[in-house]
Design a protein around this nucleic acid. Structure first.
Length: 111
DNA sequence: TGATTGACCAACT
DNA sequence: CAGTTGGCCAATC
């Protein structure tokens, strides 16, 4: 029914990320059935933070758990601060125990 | 309108 | 092991 854009789909998934959890661009892209469009997820996120602000984009990082988009939050430390505020430890722009905090939409929402 | 870029990922060399 | 290339889709130049 809704002809939802790729961006809308990404937002829907990202907003469902629980507190203190993180996920990756590729995981979202795969969950949406776009495997290779991981870059678009990042593109959508960057747009989302400027447009809405309700999207916890700081909970979305790359596959290595590295805060690649930190600079898009208006400051190089904002994203790290937000994650640490949720109990996620960040060292050297990378999430500690990333796998432990990792939240896979295809696995949690899935099926 | 064609070419380039972009908060990525995986494979290949 | 590190650098390059291809792929995905959309937005910007």
């Amino acid at each position: 029914m809704n002809h939802i854009n790729f961006f809308e789909k990404v937002y829907q998934v990202v907003v469902l990320i629980p507190y203190g959890r993180v996920t990756s661009y590729g995981a979202i892209a795969r969950y949406l059935g776009m495997g290779g469009s991981a870059r678009m997820v990042g593109w959508a996120m960057r747009a989302s933070h400027t447009q809405v602000g309700n999207v916890p984009a700081h909970r979305v990082v790359n596959r290595n758990g590295m805060l690649t988009g930190k600079h898009a939050f208006g400051g190089p430390d904002v994203m790290q601060q937000l994650l640490q505020a949720e109990g996620i430890k960040v060292v050297d722009d990378r999430i500690v125990d990333f796998v432990k905090h990792f939240w896979d939409p295809a696995k949690e929402l899935e099926r």
